[in-house]
């Protein structure tokens, strides 16, 4: 897949359809993938990766990339295309300046998931259907994909792309994802139980703002949490409940605009 994507990206750069490619590259570690922009065939060969670690939703980066001159090529997994459309309805980027290629996704894993399974010294990853091979400095280790999937991928809502200019590979179907099972459980709780549940969940928040920064729905020019005039800006919390309010306010801000891409849970 990675080879096909690089080849197609080179073609599009070559014939002038696009000026830049938005993709992924490895960070300090092989599992430490970050979004990256490539401008030449050489850069693509040297850095472009697409593997089971490439969970990042690239659609949010289009806001910045389309501000530049020329056209940008972006690779979108099925769930990313939902955010792509949402950003489009909010006029956050210019569709004319984007060439979108839909790519298949069988579900992503992460360094954390593998480390929890006792893997260390990761140098690379390969996938083949349901099996995943992790290369480490201590040799290869095989896994069932379903055992190491990220939480958000366990309830994957769709393998179908809702926006693209072309597809690499086959398009899938919208899945029966059971993603509302947890909602049903929440609704079945008594108000006290629910309150306790949320207090416990929200107490995990250290207010690092990573969820906001990665969220495609959180793309405001100036976030209310960075705006002292909003009255809810970042400041030392007076008590633990005030800290919890961050998540509650954010939930209201993205309500109706969240496409359930799960980036926040990954961050």
């Amino acid at each position: 897949m990675q080879g096909m994507m690089i080849a197609r990206a080179k073609e599009l750069l070559q014939d002038g359809t696009v000026n830049r490619v938005l993709g992924w590259q490895a960070g300090e570690f092989a599992y430490d993938i970050t979004p990256a922009v490539f401008e030449t065939a050489e850069e693509l060969d040297a850095g472009f990766v697409y593997n089971a670690f490439c969970g990042n939703n690239l659609s949010k980066y289009l806001i910045k990339e389309t501000k530049k001159d020329g056209k940008v090529l972006v690779f979108l997994k099925p769930c990313d295309t939902y955010s792509f459309n949402q950003l489009l309805t909010e006029h956050r980027f210019d569709r004319e300046k984007v060439y979108a290629i839909g790519i298949p996704c069988e579900g992503k894993t992460s360094g954390e998931m593998l480390k929890a399974k006792g893997v260390s010294g990761i140098t690379g990853i390969d996938e083949d259907g349901d099996s995943i091979t992790v290369h480490t400095v201590y040799g290869d280790q095989g896994f069932n994909r379903s055992d190491v999937l990220e939480e958000r991928c366990l309830t994957c809502k769709s393998k179908k792309h809702v926006a693209y200019d072309e597809l690499i590979g086959e398009d899938g179907e919208v899945l029966d994802s059971h993603r509302f099972d947890m909602v049903a459980k929440l609704e079945a709780m008594t108000p006290d139980e629910r309150f306790a549940f949320w207090r416990s969940q929200l107490s995990k928040c250290i207010r690092c703002n990573a969820c906001r920064n990665v969220c495609p729905a959180c793309s405001c020019e100036k976030c209310v949490f960075d705006n002292p005039e909003s009255g809810i800006a970042q400041k030392a919390a007076a008590d633990s409940f005030e800290e919890n309010m961050f998540q509650i306010i954010r939930a209201f801000h993205v309500a109706g605009r969240c496409t359930d891409c799960g980036e926040c849970s990954r961050a």
Partner: peptide, 9 residues
């Protein structure tokens, strides 16, 4: 205008 995203909401 400095804070407006242009989202049309």
């Amino acid at each position: 205008e400095l804070m407006c995203n242009g989202c049309s909401s």
